[in-house]
Every structure is written in C-alpha cells, then in structure tokens.
Design a protein around this nucleic acid. Structure first.
Length: 270
DNA sequence: ATGCCGGGTACGACCCGA
C-alpha cells in the first residue's frame, strides 16, 4: 500500500498536475496540504472519477488539508484539538481498515512561523505543543499511526542545501527543533531517515533559481509509530515532478508499506 | 535576498508562503 504526502500550493491551480500524477501513480492514499479552498469549492468530482474517496478540511484563501483514499474512510477527524478559537485548517485524520487491522493517517500542515519576531512564531510553537498532546494520545492506541505532511521543519543540517543560511529561520532554529525532537521522542520514526542517509529535498523555492541550483530543503515528512514502522518497505521522492509544467514548490513524498487493502474499494459513504 | 516567484482574493493591490 502506498501512502503519499504532497503540499500542492493551491488545488485550483494544481488540478491538472495532480490528476495526471494520480492517473500515473494510483497510490492508495494521497494527503494534500495548502488546498487554499473551502470545502464546497474543492473539485472532489475530479478525484471521485478516479475512484478516490475525498475528505477535506478547508478554509478561504490559504491553508486547508485533504485526504484522498481508494479505501473507504472508517472515521474522519478535522482540526487540531486544544484551541477552539484557532480558525486555521491544518489537520485532518482518517482511519482505514487493512487486512490485519486498522490504520490511522493524520495529515498536518504545521505553521511556518516566520517572521520569528511576529506573532506567527509563538503560534507555531503553541501549535506544536497541541500536536504533542494529540500525538501522545494517538500513540497510546498502540496501532499503526502515520503522521505525515508539511512539517515546516528542517530536522538536520543534511536536510538543507545551505544550513548556515537557514539557521535562525523558524524552520531551523533551537526552539522549533527542540519541540520537534520532543515530539519524535514520543516514539515516532522519520521514515525517510530510516531508509537512507542521502540528502533528500522535498521543497525548492520558486525564486532565485532554487530548483535549477538544487537549493532545496526537506520539510515534508512521514513520521511513523512503531506499528507502522514495522510495515515500512521504502520511501521514494519523485523529484522530477518539481520540473513539470505549473509545478508546486513541493514534490510528493511516497511511503510504501506492507499493509494490504481489504477486498475491493467501494464508494458511497458519507 | 523577510518576497526575486506564485497563488489567493477580487479586479488593483495586498496577504500569504519558506
């Protein structure tokens, strides 16, 4: 079973790229960040035609997350608990069945946090505190759990082309990394780093020829519970997608797992 | 290089992103 994360930077502008990629790749699950759409305007039919079940958690103008799945959703949860006044749509979770049990897939778009001097940075840190609480509860379930998405965090120097240039940015500074390590120390495995020590970028800025110069960073991650790590086969990052027509500034990150779907996929829920 | 692109809203600039 293939489970993929992709920050697509606007569903409206990216629909042709995503549908052609889906026709080619047909992953069981694709999670999207930055759909920049309200739920009513999400082009769900374009994905349903391809056999996908669609669940969204959108908002007007920016942010917004979605899960596309060939398998039916057993459960859907929207929003990160811990602040009822937080209007930003950055988390959606789906629960699925596979032959040996259940699989919980939580898609996040973690706040960027820049500029560090603005209110955006404390928002990032408090969002990470809320995520910590949430993940702690999820891990107590002792089941396959995949926390994936755009973390807006550069884990280590190897994960950026120019570490000295990035150091101090909200994506790569002590306060952010301390909370990130506290989170992963709950018992999450970085799937990419479990399989390779090679530099593996997932984002290249639109500006300043970043793609041409390979001036990239790795900020899109699959973080796995022990029960999910046991089933991990490999991680692939199809970086060529960054060179397609009208690309996102992020590329997909694909996880291949030993989970097997239950029978035929069916639509018609919800 | 705290905005050079690129997408959003809304239709002329501004907000947002990493």
């Amino acid at each position: 079973m293939r489970i993929v994360t992709w920050n697509i930077n606007g569903i409206k502008a990216r629909l042709p790229v995503i549908t052609s990629w889906l026709r080619q790749e047909k992953p069981e699950i694709l999670v999207l960040q930055e759909i920049k759409s309200v739920d009513e305007n999400f082009p769900r039919e374009s994905f349903e035609e391809l056999g996908y079940n669609v669940q969204t958690h959108g908002q007007k103008g920016f942010n917004g997350v979605a899960i596309l799945s060939l398998m039916p959703f057993d459960e859907v949860h929207r929003g990160l608990p811990g602040d009822k006044n937080d209007p930003q749509a950055r988390l959606i979770e789906g629960v699925f069945s596979h032959k040996a049990g259940s699989l919980r897939v939580c898609n996040i778009y973690l706040p960027n946090g820049n500029p560090v001097e603005s209110e955006k940075f404390p928002y990032k840190l408090s969002w990470m505190d809320r995520l910590h609480e949430f993940v702690e509860q999820r891990l107590q379930l002792e089941e396959p759990f995949i926390l994936l998405g755009d973390f807006n965090l550069i884990p280590e120097a190897i994960d950026c082309h120019n570490p000295k240039g990035w150091w101090g940015d909200a994506l790569y500074r002590p306060e952010s990394l301390e909370k990130f390590r506290r989170l992963t120390n709950l018992g999450l495995t970085d799937a990419l780093r479990a399989t390779t020590n090679a530099p593996s970028y997932t984002f290249w800025d639109f500006q300043a020829g970043a793609w041409r110069k390979n001036n990239g960073i790795r900020i899109d991650h699959l973080m796995l519970s022990a029960q999910a790590t046991d089933q991990l086969k490999e991680i692939k990052i199809p970086r060529d997608v960054r060179g397609w027509d009208k690309p996102s500034d992020h590329v997909p990150v694909e996880g291949e797992f030993n989970f097997e779907p239950v029978g035929e996929t069916v639509s018609g829920f919800d």
